[in-house]
């Protein structure tokens, strides 16, 4: 049986899941953070593209849980557990949280990248999910693609080419 390889896309403030031979990808992470939670034995993974640290920042009633670090980690975890992954074996890789613009004005929102990274680490720590690799901070945008077959995360930036973590 031939299998068609698909690249599953994750939009901004969105999350999705993948199993081999498919890979999962999100583009244009600036201050946003891409979170991948995966289980090597069953080769399943989920990816979220979060924009903000805390769901408590939402100013309207309905919360898109994939947009915030705390709720996105919760949802990834629950879905992976429901798919049969063991929580003890879940691992994470994260990328993003850059500071693209250097502003002289002290607008708190312009420092959202580092805050997002902190929030993701806190959320993962609550569930004792270990971060195996990370590529965070700096001032470059990133496009990332995760392969659940190899558990490798490919990171592309404009100036520094491609690297794998």
């Amino acid at each position: 049986m031939s299998s068609v390889v698909n690249v599953i896309k994750v939009g901004m403030a969105d999350l999705n899941y993948a199993t081999p031979p498919n890979t999962i990808r999100t583009t244009g992470l600036g201050s946003c953070v891409g979170i991948i939670i995966y289980e090597e034995r069953q080769k399943i993974c989920g990816m979220a593209h979060i924009m903000l640290p805390e769901s408590s920042m939402a100013r309207s009633g309905q919360v898109n849980r994939a947009k915030y670090a705390d709720t996105a980690v919760e949802d990834l975890l629950h879905h992976l557990e429901q798919s049969g992954a063991s929580r003890l074996r879940l691992k994470a890789k994260i990328a993003g949280g850059a500071q693209m613009f250097q502003f002289s004005t002290a607008n708190e929102m312009m420092r959202i990248g580092p805050r997002n990274v902190e929030a993701v680490k806190t959320a993962l720590n609550i569930y004792k999910i270990k971060i195996i690799a990370e590529d965070v901070g700096g001032n470059s945008g990133r496009t990332i693609e995760f392969d659940p077959e190899t558990s490798k995360l490919e990171i592309r930036t404009v100036n520094k080419g491609i690297k794998e973590i």
């Binding site: 901004m12 583009t27 613009f101 470059s140 945008g141 404009v158």
Partner: peptide, 11 residues
């Protein structure tokens, strides 16, 4: 900034 459009616009 000189970078990917989406990474920039997200700000």
């Amino acid at each position: 900034a000189i970078d990917m459009p989406m990474a920039i616009l997200s700000y």
